[in-house]
Write a protein that binds this DNA or RNA. Structure first.
Lengths: 235, 235
DNA sequence: ACAAAAGTGTTCAAAATACACCCATGA
DNA sequence: TCATGGGTGTATTTTGAACACTTTTGT
């Protein structure tokens, strides 16, 4: 706000969403194929221009509504600002990117040009959208470890082995059901529903069903180390 | 980028810095007292308007140069976007906020209207700057736990008890020198210089001096839990 | 009865906290 | 030699990973 009204160059602020979901055993991101230049036939994150009467979060929710039912999005959080002057051709566009999650049991209707693409093999992405998508994946992976964000990937009720598959897909490596169960239980994130799921055709013991105790994001392991001393920790 | 050139309302993008330093045993933030409206006599974070040829990080470094010597800033990272439509009076301004750190041994020359204010008792802050400053503090606190970010608060060479004071001030609770030493050493963050500091007037054993092995930020405790299984963890 | 899947008990290892005690210096 | 701050050794606790074994089902 130093140089007040110096014939300011045009500036557009856009919001972009990396909407992630685990489908068919892999972590995927919602992309649409650009029909027109610039970057025709390359794949873009959904998003659009920030309007005058909304903040960035309201904006991304509105824009997303054009692609997926917003009620299906279980978590939205700011990721970062992308502002390289030439990040898109033409007039300058600064972008605020978001990480959004959709639980695995939902399969929203999508427009023709839109698809869930695996993060491990993205088709030619537009602009800087690949790095945004990968940043979203990294954020999700980190948060699976020290928050309850798993609730946003999972259906309302699930078995431990189903949850294990979600975590494995999102993290990119095999997670042990035993340990997953214990870690999440000790932290009080999981609560048993009392129900059990019927085993598959191959038999096997019926699996107990659980739900997440909370469905808003919270940090559950606040300090990895350097915790306050025991007496100051009490409250 | 949906509604392309619809007589767009004016939009300004500013960058703001929460510059933190530990001084006199407490964590402080650099603020300047506004002389003029709006919010005259309230305290603002330094910052200013994003220019056409720079990205947000370049911009904050440039703006900061007007307040403190940029070479004295040991760390800069994006915090978040603040975009409530009415966050400042007048034409709309979207802000990208940064967390910046200055090591405790430096005492940059400051303009007349600028001062280091304790985060625990901020004077009347302007606009939404208090929440930005507090967000910066929280980010710093979290990162002290799982990254090497301490390097950015400490002088190039220091004793463990000096480092303990920095961590205590930043975290807001007493940190044990013994454990601090061990945790940082085990992670390979600290290296001994071989030098010792002369004891104070009251005597006492001379303290060994250390330095941080690295002075760019790195995550040192990547997964609190749900680590990959041992065999997949190797590389 | 047996295979398959789920769940529990137990062991093991690592890492962090707590605390006691020893070390090196100034007065 | 004693008070003062610094450092090390060690015990305790917590937490997560690994693995063996039991439970419950379908065929």
């Amino acid at each position: 706000m130093t140089d007040a009204t110096t014939g300011a160059p045009p500036l557009v602020h856009e919001v972009l969403a990396a909407v992630l979901q685990v489908r068919q055993g892999s972590l995927r991101v919602l992309l649409w194929e650009r029909a027109m230049e610039p970057h025709a036939h390359r794949w873009s994150l959904p998003g659009g221009r920030l309007r005058a009467d909304e903040d960035v979060e309201a904006s991304i929710r509105r824009q997303l509504a054009e692609k997926v039912d917003v009620r299906q999005v279980s978590h939205v959080e700011q990721l970062a600002v992308f502002s390289a002057p030439e990040r898109v051709p033409g007039p300058r566009v600064v972008a605020t990117a978001f990480l959004c999650l959709v639980p695995s049991h939902l399969d929203p209707e999508l427009p023709e040009d839109t698809a869930w693409q695996p993060l491990s093999a993205l088709p030619r992405p537009a602009f800087d959208h690949e790095s945004i998508a990968l940043r979203a994946r990294n954020r999700l992976r980190a948060k699976l470890s020290y928050t309850n964000i798993g609730f946003a990937l999972a259906p309302p009720v699930f078995t431990i082995s189903a949850l294990r598959e979600l975590y494995s897909a999102a993290l990119g490596y095999r997670v042990s059901a035993t340990n997953l169960q214990r870690v999440l239980s000790r932290r009080g994130l999981l609560e048993p529903t009392g129900q059990t799921a019927r085993p598959g055709r191959a038999g096997g013991r019926p699996a107990a069903q659980f739900r997440f105790a909370d469905s808003t994001m919270a940090v559950t392991d606040p300090f990895a180390v350097l915790k306050p001393p025991a007496d100051e920790r009490g409250k």
